[in-house]
Design a protein around this nucleic acid. Structure first.
Lengths: 209, 209
DNA sequence: TAGATTGTTAATCGATTAACAATC
DNA sequence: TAGATTGTTAATCGATTAACAATC
């Protein structure tokens, strides 16, 4: 990794990984940049350029070995170095993630969830305990947490974010739909703006109609 | 709208809309491209270029009127032309969207949800009825549906997508995490790949550590 | 009018695509 | 070896940034 990789390339890596996993499941052994490009709607050139940001994984005259490529891309994304995660807010969305999202497939270990609803505290979802939200700060002082998943109501986002940053949480996966304005130091925030996604869909639909 | 607007610009529109809504709530009356750029991490030039794709909403020497600009951007996104939507799959994720996502704020009317779980069929969430999944096709022949939200297990994605396309559903908001390979005609698919988002976050976190 | 800030054209920068020599 | 396909350099294209005249 000679220099800074552009965000465009980084955001394509998970797509490549997904496609490789799919091809592997179909027991495809090798793939050329041309084939891959056709399947993914990219040019062969772009694919080769992307991979060469990281040193090139192919073999001239042959193409790319699917299994090898999946492992290489997984390595770049760091799937082998597990990060710890907690979910804050165990409402429908939080529970949907806990129950259905395969954190472990993406290099994360989901350690606990937090909520303030007495009916939820003490229960567990899919093996993940729901702890009392009031104990969050204490938990963070005793346990190392890399990433917090924010699935509680947006009104608490700023306050919780400050707490997380103060306690050394380095990543925030933000589902609240608000931008977090708090001073984040070098904590990284990844926003999931569902409304942006739906509005974009709506734009294209209305444009056609 | 003289020519085709680039996807980059379109994807920034919802962000502008959000920022305008926020400023309006703060009772800010006008904003210049410079101020807006600072708040949003964009250059003033880019903002003016973006808006001028649609004809320019500002006033020289003054800036942009917040309320007016929000309305104009909402107009471009077509918030005034309501589209009908259904949710397919009323598990945690589906119910999270039904209960917490403000479809109406984004120009959508959520008409119904579908599931195959007998314990859910006949119940309703937040005023939205959960209907029998088996009746989906019949429903689609009798009701005009613009957008289907896919929140059921990914195994059904391809089959349901074909049904939707066949019955004239023009937009699919896909939460299943699989790419839909079916022949989609001119049905528009917007994928919400949560794993891509988390993998990207992980990449940046691991790079720093 | 003078000051501010847009709308818009021109310049720059970066990302994508094309081309081809290297090599399996 | 001949064919295929990569890695990599060069060309193109598009998006962002800078500059400034128009104008409120």
């Amino acid at each position: 990794m000679k220099y800074k990789i552009s965000a465009n390339v980084i955001r394509r890596l998970p797509r490549y990984l997904r496609r490789m996993t799919m091809l592997e499941r179909q027991e495809v052994e090798k793939v050329s940049s041309t084939e891959l490009g056709e399947r993914m709607g990219l040019t062969a050139s772009q694919i080769r350029q992307d991979f060469n940001c990281f040193g090139g994984f192919g073999q001239q005259g042959y193409g790319y070995n699917v299994k090898q490529l999946r492992e290489d891309i997984g390595g770049i994304l760091g799937l082998d170095r597990t990060l710890s995660a907690i979910v804050i807010g165990a409402g429908n969305l939080g529970r949907a993630l806990i129950a259905n999202f395969h954190f472990s497939s993406y290099g994360f270990c989901l350690e606990a969830a937090f909520d303030t609803d007495p009916a939820l505290i003490g229960t567990s979802v899919n093996g993940t305990a729901i702890l009392n939200g009031a104990s969050l700060e204490a938990y963070l002082t005793e346990n190392h947490v890399d990433v917090a998943v924010l699935t509680m109501p947006k009104g608490f986002a700023a306050e919780i974010a400050r707490l997380l940053v103060r306690r050394g949480v380095r990543g925030i996966w933000n589902f609240t739909g608000t931008d977090i304005d708090a001073d984040l130091g070098d904590t990284v925030v990844e926003d999931v703006h569902l409304s942006d996604s739906l509005l974009t869909l709506g734009y294209y639909l209305r444009g056609v109609s």
